[in-house]
């Protein structure tokens, strides 16, 4: 079997695994439903009469479905965003918050919580702050007379630092009994507050960014070569890098806007995808998205069922991510020696 075909089959298998994970996740929780029941609920929701009661319909369609759609979209998005940044910055250790948009979105959310705004407005402000950070980074970095990639990273560090300071200040002045715990809990990352309203805010920009990045996957391959090589192949590296950064940043800001900081997914999933499938973004982008979606949905299942109190998802992804990162470092050392 040629390698291209086997890679496509692996992507397909990952896609099927991701769909199965979604069906299982819809059934997991205090009110357990078997996968067969889940399929019946979904068919009934599509208009077929499957004889399901109101309770399972309500639990699946109104409580779990928006949460699982969110975990799938954000898992896929963070993985895709992480892989895009890794390829355009030619650095496998880069994560989606490399340009500081996560810090900016966190600041937006913290400020909104301090002002006592609704959860929907918290998400909107977080998203808008992420976009403001992106604009600052773009405007400032284009005026710095340096190599484009380096100036982006340096300006990103500055922006990240500024917004992190802003978040610390918001925490300092917030009420330690009510607001401070809410900010802290939000920033730990959780999908518990996600409903269809929050999803409607981010779903369209996320899907548009997914489509653009998948369509650009071949050209993003070329950005991982040296700048001279990519340009000698006739590729407008500045334009493609700009589009890719805008899309990956919007994905990151969207994620923080509705679920807070979810670390590590955007760093480790691209590595798993490249190990399992290929370095070629035409295949590793979809496989990263499937692995990210499946992984975040699995972690979310654990976060809401492991104990009586829901564990913030950001804590669990760090528990998985940190040892995996060490594994990668050891693997790298063995490879070099």
């Amino acid at each position: 079997m040629n390698s291209g075909r086997s890679e496509r089959i692996k992507v397909l298998v990952l896609g099927i695994g991701c769909a199965l994970m979604a069906i299982i996740a819809l059934g997991v929780g205090r009110y357990y439903l078997s996968p067969v029941s889940i399929v019946r609920v979904l068919l009934q929701a599509c208009g077929l009469d499957m004889g399901m009661d109101k309770n399972p319909m309500a639990v699946v369609m109104h409580i779990r479905l928006p949460r699982i759609i969110a975990s799938m979209l954000l898992g896929a998005g963070l993985a895709l965003s992480g892989q895009t940044f890794q390829m355009i910055f030619r650095n496998p250790l880069v994560s989606p918050d490399v340009l500081g948009t996560s810090s900016a979105a966190s600041f937006g959310a913290s400020l909104s919580l301090l002002l006592g705004l609704s959860s929907f407005l918290v998400s909107i402000n977080a998203f808008l702050c992420g976009l403001v950070a992106l604009m600052i980074i773009y405007v400032v970095s284009t005026r710095v007379r340096r190599e484009q990639t380096l100036s982006l990273i340096l300006v990103g560090m500055v922006v990240s630092s500024l917004f992190s300071s802003g978040t610390s200040f918001v925490k300092l002045v917030s009420d330690p009994n009510n607001v401070l715990p809410a900010i802290t809990y939000f920033l730990m990352g959780s999908l518990s507050g996600v409903g269809f309203e929050e999803l409607s805010l981010i779903a369209v920009p996320l899907v548009i960014c997914f489509i653009v990045l998948l369509a650009l996957s071949w050209k993003i391959n070329l950005l991982s070569l040296s700048e001279d090589e990519a340009r000698s192949l006739g590729v407008n590296t500045h334009l493609i890098r700009l589009i890719a950064i805008v899309c990956a940043t919007i994905i990151t800001a969207s994620s923080v806007a509705i679920a807070g900081n979810i670390g590590w997914v955007g760093l480790i999933v691209p590595h798993i995808s490249r190990m399992l499938v290929s370095n070629d973004a035409r295949k590793s982008f979809p496989s990263s998205m499937f692995i990210g979606a499946g992984l975040l949905t699995l972690v979310d299942c654990v976060s809401r069922t492991a104990s009586t109190v829901e564990i913030p998802i950001g804590i669990l992804t760090s528990f998985i991510g940190a040892p995996f990162f060490l594994f990668l470092l050891f693997k790298e050392v063995r490879h070099d020696s």
């Binding site: 650009l216 996957s217 050209k219 391959n221 192949l233 590729v235």
Partner: peptide, 12 residues
């Protein structure tokens, strides 16, 4: 990758 100069922005 050598054929990239003949492809449009979103073409593979």
């Amino acid at each position: 990758m050598g054929c990239s100069n003949r492809l449009s922005l979103l073409q593979r």
